[in-house]
Amino acid sequence: MAELWVLADKAETAKELLAHAKSLAGDETIACLTGSAETAEAAAAHGADRVLLYEGGSRPESYVPHWCERARLERPAALLLGADRRSKEIAARMAARLQAGLISDCVKLERREGFYSERYLFGGLCLAGETTGSAPFLATMAAGKAQPLPAGAPASVEKVTVSCDDAVRRIDLRPHRSASNLMEAKVIVCAGRGVAKQEDLKLAEELARALGGEVGCTRPVAEERHWMPEENYIGITGKKPAPELYITLGVSGQIQHMSGVRDSKCIVAIEKNDGAPITEAADYTIIGDLYEVVPKMLAELRS
């Protein structure tokens, strides 16, 4: 019987992908292939019918040739991966080896005649709906688009030991030191280019603290000015959080940024220019100088 495959390194990703696979499965069963024992265990309990735990690789990427070899033999109908950077590399390499198409950053996936997928183009400006008829279908799925299935009776985990001839060697892996927790935050204050000096980020921090939230920034603030670590920038190419309240300070509202926060419940902008694109993309915009508005807001929140 044909299978749908989920390929994941992280347990959270695997659980979401299994939920996607479940919603797509016709008469197929679902297999999870992973190089992580923790992920294997999570997948076995959350919807996989079969789990293959690979051993012998030095990095998740090590298994690309082995997974492709198995895909050629077992001919799964679809292969689903996460949209994190490692997974996107793995997916693209597998698609090239399998001479298959690959839909990146899918925000919606349905089974019609073939697989119907939706993804954003031009920095989030437009949404493309596409149908893929040929097999195998490959997609990387945007995070947060499926609810993990409840834990059930665990499926069996089969160990597969392989030897890997890695052309790329890992020398070191240094975890990020950023203490921020943007993805879980209920409130986010985002600093944009309208914040004039690095020390003025304190204003954003104070506002975030008053609201029990976290501070993020736009891509230029992280990558051009280097005022905040890269893992704090928000946008279609960075973090895509979905807070209850998203407050921008001096953010003009370019599409690449706003696309990253489209799932926010309420967007508030503090912006000098009443013609800025952010006014079209926010629920509420206070037209004013952030250096005057933020202290007023802090006072109002404390009263």
Partner: peptide
């Protein structure tokens, strides 16, 4: 391999209230 079925501007359904 994929056929495009639709290409539409993304909708931003926001209140767009200006406070001055």
């Amino acid at each position: 391999t994929a056929q495009q079925e639709s290409l539409l501007g993304a909708v931003t359904d926001r209140k767009r209230v200006l406070l001055k």
